[in-house]
């Protein structure tokens, strides 16, 4: 336990405490710092921009997750009914996970380039005008498609792990009862994969909520701030060497993360109790 805690302490706890401290100062250089109390926090949480970014991040997470989870679960369900070739499908969906994050936006931009891109030329040929630079809706569509491409593999792999953990006997019992495919999904598969999916839900929520590199590389938060998410505001502060404000923002984001992690834990614990309850009923019945 000790080595792990030492490493986490160095890369996690110490920087966090430092940020907590910086957040109360107006810092020109590290040697020249002036106590400003809660001013940075006040400035951030009273600015309209913070809430606008917060809302955009939330909307992005909601859209991305509804697309990725409905597609991912359907795909994983299909894969779990396949023969040995399932390994190839899992390998296929895992491919985008190994692409360096700063390259993803570039790959998609070159793909939809109207003169040299495969998809871009196809769209130009079909007469579809696509302008991700200046049309906010198009930027959003591109970001969501790109994020889905990038992360659907994780959802499929984790959902597949859930599906493959369901004992055969459940399916046999359902077949004897003459349950429809949808009923099997709703009453047997969905409850059984929830625990496997919970981590996917959590990871996807936080990572999309704090999306940074890909969104910045795509359109730098534009057009007109339409895709400036929470973490892009933070990057902007860092680039301006605004230490105090950066630190205060970091602390606020960390608080959000902490709250989400804590809610997640409560949810998982409740989930565990429900599962136990079901088991008791089964033994009794």
């Amino acid at each position: 336990m000790i080595p792990a805690l030492a490493v986490m302490g160095l890369v996690g706890v110490v920087p966090l405490l430092a940020a907590f401290n910086y957040a109360f100062f107006d810092i020109f250089t590290i040697q020249q710092a002036y106590w400003v109390g809660d001013e940075w926090y006040r400035q951030i949480i009273t600015s309209d921009r913070f809430y606008a970014s917060f809302g955009r991040s939330l909307l992005f997470s909601a859209l991305v997750m509804s697309v990725q989870f409905s597609l991912g679960i359907a795909l994983a369900r299909m894969v779990s009914r396949m023969g040995p070739s399932r390994i190839f499908v899992l390998m296929l969906v895992a491919l985008p996970l190994v692409v360096p994050w700063n390259m993803i936006a570039m790959m998609w931009q070159s793909l939809i380039h109207p003169e040299t891109g495969i998809a871009g030329r196809a769209m130009a040929f079909a007469g579809i005008g696509f302008d991700y630079k200046f049309n906010a809706i198009h930027t959003w569509i591109l970001l969501i498609v790109m994020d889905t491409w990038h992360w659907i593999g994780l959802v499929v792999i984790l959902a597949y792990a859930g599906f493959s953990g369901i004992p055969k006997a459940y399916y046999q019992a359902a077949a004897i009862d003459g349950a429809s495919s949808f009923a099997v999904f709703r009453h047997i598969e969905l409850p059984k994969i929830t625990s496997a999916l919970s981590i996917a839900i959590l990871l996807r929520f936080m990572d999309s909520f704090m999306i940074n590199t890909e969104a910045f590389a795509m359109n730098a938060g534009g057009p007109y701030y339409a895709t400036s998410f929470l973490s892009l505001d933070l990057s902007e502060d860092i680039k301006a060497f605004n230490y105090g404000s950066t630190a205060a923002r970091s602390m606020l984001y960390f608080l959000i993360v902490m709250t989400v992690a804590w809610l997640f834990r409560i949810w998982v614990e409740r989930q565990g109790r429900v599962d136990d309850g079901v088991q008791v009923v089964k033994v009794g019945g």
């Binding site: 986490m8 890369v11 996690g12 110490v14 920087p15 966090l16 430092a18 940020a19 910086y22 959590l202 990871l203 936080m206 704090m210 940074n212 973490s231 933070l234 990057s235 860092i238 230490y243 950066t246 630190a247 923002r249 970091s250 984001y253 960390f254 993360v257 902490m258 989400v260 992690a261 804590w262 997640f264 834990r265």
Partner: peptide, 18 residues
């Protein structure tokens, strides 16, 4: 809980103090 929180914290939030 600490492990979970640090995994979820976006790197950009800790980049300056790090």
């Amino acid at each position: 809980l600490m492990l979970l929180t640090f995994r979820l914290t976006p790197p950009v939030a800790l980049s300056l103090p790090v």
